[in-house]
């Protein structure tokens, strides 16, 4: 579903020294893969997702989605394949527009907007059904501006928007990290339900090693712009957080342990 080959991305500092964010990354994502990505800060996780989404250009390498080379396609062209949920709940929705208007724009992802009505009555009915599944009472608030919603509600709405017109690839960039623990758990559960229930292909960045093993079917560990570990079920199913950390130490030395309190 997604293939990246020899991806390289360097962010240039003012002094001519570059920071290598992606260092010849190769990755092959099968249809239906739900991949969790872990790694310390600056490992290149977010850069990988941004490069796949087209928010950044690559310096080298190629990206294919569903067999199509999208390396030089701008972000808005690739959007027809990709659903995204960001860490910041404010980024995924337009605050001054209503819930139904936001959903209508997401529903038509990848189609050039025209002069037909923005929201039809048939769509309203469908939005109401889908919102009811979130169990947040949003199905009765279609005409409310999204700015009135809480962070958790907005993130749930963003998740719904990212998946409403089935994406070939769903990119989740620590989408529960900015939420309080209880809300984070709810959004996590919703993610599992949507991605698992509809067999979506997804990449999810997380700082929670337990989540990394519990969600999906495959886990990547990144460090200094490289994928240093790629484990799948059934091998992954038997692993614990300690096994993951041990693997890291074996591969890269002890530095990861310093992050353990943060990660585990």
């Amino acid at each position: 579903m997604l293939r990246v080959s020899q991806l390289r991305k360097v962010f240039n500092g003012g002094n001519g020294m570059g920071k290598i964010a992606l260092d010849n990354v190769d990755l092959h994502v099968e249809p239906g893969d739900f991949i969790t990505i872990i790694g310390s800060n600056g490992a290149g996780k977010s850069t990988l997702l941004n490069v796949v989404a087209g928010a950044y250009d690559v310096d080298q390498g190629r990206i294919w989605i569903d067999g199509q080379d999208v390396t030089i396609q701008p972000e808005h062209r690739r959007a027809r394949f990709i659903g995204r949920v960001f860490q910041d709940p404010m980024v995924g929705t337009a605050a001054s527009m209503t819930i139904e208007e936001n959903l209508a724009m997401a529903l038509k992802r990848g189609q050039a907007p025209g002069l037909s009505r923005g929201v039809s009555n048939a769509e309203r009915g469908r939005f109401r059904e889908l919102l009811a599944l979130l169990d947040l009472g949003l199905e009765n608030r279609l005409q409310d501006p999204v700015g009135l919603l809480s962070g958790g509600q907005r993130q749930a709405l963003t998740l719904l928007m990212a998946t409403i017109s089935t994406p070939k690839l769903l990119l989740l960039d620590e989408h529960t990290a900015a939420l309080d623990p209880k809300t984070a758990e709810q959004i996590g559960e919703l993610t599992r339900k949507i991605v698992g229930g509809r067999r979506l292909t997804a990449l999810m960045i997380t700082h929670n090693l337990q989540d990394a093993l519990e969600y999906g079917n495959r886990t990547l560990m990144m460090d200094q712009g490289k994928i240093i570990l790629d484990i799948r079920n059934p091998r992954r199913a038997k692993m614990t957080v300690d096994d993951l950390l041990e693997q890291f130490v074996a591969l890269r030395g002890t530095r990861f342990l310093d992050d353990r309190a943060l990660l585990a």
Binding site: A94, A104, M105, R109, Q111, P113, G114, S116, R117, A162
Partner: peptide, 28 residues
């Protein structure tokens, strides 16, 4: 009337949140 069309939505969203509407496939 225009602001209630798909194109009108895209225009309003561009003024509100460019990242969001780009993710919906619109060229801001």
């Amino acid at each position: 009337a225009f602001l209630k069309t798909e194109l009108g939505f895209a225009l309003r969203a561009t003024g509100d949140n460019e990242q969001m509407i780009r993710s919906c496939g619109v060229d801001t």
